[in-house]
């Protein structure tokens, strides 16, 4: 898994690529927590490079959403491939999260 941080239109953007499972989820949540602790802000997580996600990935998203809600900041997900989106749909989370098509529509 690769994590690339940037900022766009005053929001944090995290580009994730590779597989998001129980092996890689701890690294991702640690990176997010470190960033948000140092610099609380709204966050866009770009999943366009993620080719696989398990329930461990959902836990990262739920935990991050809790952090953002408590801080009064937004969390937006974008670029989910069909199979990845299906996992969010099965969990019921897709109807409750802010999920957008691409990075442009997330940061505009």
């Amino acid at each position: 898994m690769e994590l690339i941080w940037s900022d766009s239109n005053g929001m944090h953007v995290l580009e994730v690529s590779g597989s998001l499972d129980s092996n890689t989820a701890p690294e991702m949540i640690q990176s997010i927590e470190t960033c948000l602790k140092e610099s609380p802000n709204s966050l866009v997580i770009d999943f366009s490079g993620v080719d696989y996600v398990s329930s461990a990935g959902l836990r990262v998203v739920i935990k991050t959403n809790h952090t953002q809600t408590a801080a009064g900041d937004k969390m937006i997900l974008c670029g989910l491939k069909d199979y990845v989106l299906e996992v969010f749909e099965m969990s019921g989370l897709s109807k409750l999260l802010d999920i957008r098509d691409d990075i442009e529509s997330s940061t505009s």
């Binding site: 739920i62 959403n65 809790h66 989370l93």
Partner: peptide, 8 residues
């Protein structure tokens, strides 16, 4: 609601 979502 997302707030009610368990992490496991």
């Amino acid at each position: 609601s997302i707030e009610e979502a368990s992490v496991g």
